[in-house]
Design a protein around this nucleic acid. Structure first.
Lengths: 345, 345
DNA sequence: CTGTTAGCGCTTTCAG
DNA sequence: CTGAAAGCGCTAACAG
């Protein structure tokens, strides 16, 4: 049988309470006693039963998700996934709170983060903006002893515990590779549509895309990057203008949101001028555009997976356990018109 | 506070034991009493704390994985993943046992399945061979009240509880789509290498591949399918022979294992005769071949995810709970030389 | 058919 | 600094 606290107490010749104090690093134990207990733990190979511990403690894990109020399909889905996880996880003693902040607003995000320090949640997940102020705020959270996970967009140079999101450089490289191959050697201009260069995920996608095109498809010329702030209207205007100005656009990489605008611009184009198009996130509109051939490939990240992964990691950190790294790698789905899943997206 | 059995007992005016009997559908309760208890449960919105229940029961979940002894990298990885999960899950009261059977051996598999009925595990996961005898054996297991999950390769027409694996038709379609686009309109022959038409995953990949080529790339001619039984040597011989016989092979789809043999055959080919190649499973050899340009794309399934998903589902079934379908969809990774992950595979 | 009681493994007062 | 005892939510004998 697996050893229990009783076995440890017996082996070390102390009481249950003392074993518990040692296990939970609580003060009030002589060094010599502590050593005896720790030896017994090591010798018997004791591992604490977290479920029983939580039962005794009546422990709950209050986690907070700080999400931007950004009305694109992906962010709407992300919020829905957090909400769904919240109800599903209540009987696992996990409670999820959502705090909303304006999109692309550094000050608002910083304020929300700083408020966390008082609320003392057992962990915080946030969609980060890559700015020095945000990095400082995140480090303050970590200093306060609160585990922090960045979600969807990472924030390097901080002491955040984990990043729950896709490898965006790899995503950009994949987009470049697919576009290059789909164009099969033709030369011409490529339009890149981003949301904002403020967020790291968009910058990284661009970086990966540029790297592959520069290295393997030098005959493709990347036009100056357009920032559409994930707004369909703006994206449409920018796309229409770019296509009017440059008549030899043979490829488009849309690495942000607002694809409804892109699709409208594509529809307005004569069929023989349609470029090869790679976009991100499988939504109702990108799915339809894949089907009709307006978009050639969609790179997708599964918001549900990201949320579940973030929660798993936060819980592990709160329990002081390690995470199964391989399990937490968030994959990039590549959807072509021929492999669309029945559901999902 | 969340209601407990005590609250239910109080509300229904019965004892804890009676509440417990109702909760666990144990006999010995008058219909009228049972109704009273159930009303209370419904009214208070009671949900049982599974962790506490398991603690009280001292419950463990003995699950058995029936795996083929097939020495290709994927199966080796699969076994390693089960072994890794086994140690990680012991402190979650889950114990995994591996039973090995010869590969592609219907009788051996059936015998192994039938032995399960006596061992009475809390659940069985198996890599199925798609044969009537196997289907019958699986249904016998289900009849014995043991949850069954098919792993990697599905088994339809049975009452198995779940399939933990990728959508192989979609995988085949993806392969067809990528090959078609990579070839950019060129016409010619395509070689398909399978492991065995006995297993459903291979048959399904072929079906999806055929469908897309027939519909969208009719200028590509599929040669009679070669069965290499996942054996590198045989695969190499078959490939060399096919390339010798048909001089206009412009594409290869390797939908089974034994890719080391395929790669050797490709290396022997003059560079200007190299076809576009799509293969399955990211292993050391396919990864290297991607890097060197011998293989153009690799479709990958993550054995670790499949194992973890199978365990989650078996546990949910054993507890009589429902599963989060979206979480259990196993994704197909598409790897090009530009998006290889640092680790994994 | 129903209730009482003693735990599961761990934590937490409250005494000593 | 250490120990005894009660209890988290649920289940399992064993009595009635």
């Amino acid at each position: 049988m697996k050893p229990t606290v009783h076995d440890i107490a017996l082996a070390a010749g102390v009481s249950l309470a003392t074993v518990d104090r040692v296990l939970n690093r609580r003060p009030g134990v002589r060094a010599i006693t502590q050593a005896r207990v720790e030896t017994a733990i090591g010798r018997l190979g004791y591992v604490r039963d977290v479920a029983a511990a939580n039962l005794a403690k009546g422990r709950v894990y209050p986690f907070t998700f700080i999400l931007p109020v950004n009305e694109n399909s992906f962010m709407i889905d992300l919020r829905a996934q957090v909400a769904a996880a919240a109800v599903r996880l209540t009987n696992e003693r996990i409670s999820l709170r959502i705090v909303e902040v304006p999109a692309f607003d550094i000050q608002g995000l910083v304020a929300a983060i700083d408020e966390m320090v008082d609320g003392k949640p057992a962990g915080v997940a946030l969609v980060a903006i890559d700015a020095p102020e945000v990095r400082a705020a995140v480090d303050r959270l970590v200093d306060a002893g609160i585990p922090v996970v960045s979600l969807v967009s990472d924030l390097t140079g901080t002491r955040r515990d984990h990043y729950a999101g896709v490898d965006n450089i790899a995503a950009g490289r994949t987009a470049g590779s697919l576009l290059g191959r789909f164009l099969g050697g033709a030369a011409g201009n490529v339009v890149v549509l981003a949301g904002s260069m403020l967020v790291r995920d968009h910058r990284e996608r661009l970086e990966g895309f540029r790297a592959v095109l520069g290295q393997d498809y030098a005959h493709l010329q990347i036009l100056p990057v357009l920032e559409g702030f994930d707004d369909p209207l703006l994206v449409e205007q920018l796309t229409v203008a770019a296509l009017a100005e440059h008549h030899d656009v043979i490829g488009i990489y849309s690495l942000g949101a607002g694809n409804r605008g892109l699709i409208r611009a594509l529809q307005a184009l004569p069929a023989d001028r349609r470029p090869a198009v790679i976009a991100h996130e499988l939504t109702a509109s990108t799915r339809a555009a894949l089907g009709s051939g307006l978009i050639d490939a969609v790179l997708n990240q599964d918001a549900g997976h990201e949320v579940r992964s973030a929660v798993r990691v936060l819980k592990a950190k709160a329990d002081g356990l390690s995470v199964v790294e391989a399990q937490e790698r968030i994959r990039i789905d590549i959807f072509l018109k021929d492999n669309l899943p029945q559901t999902a997206g």
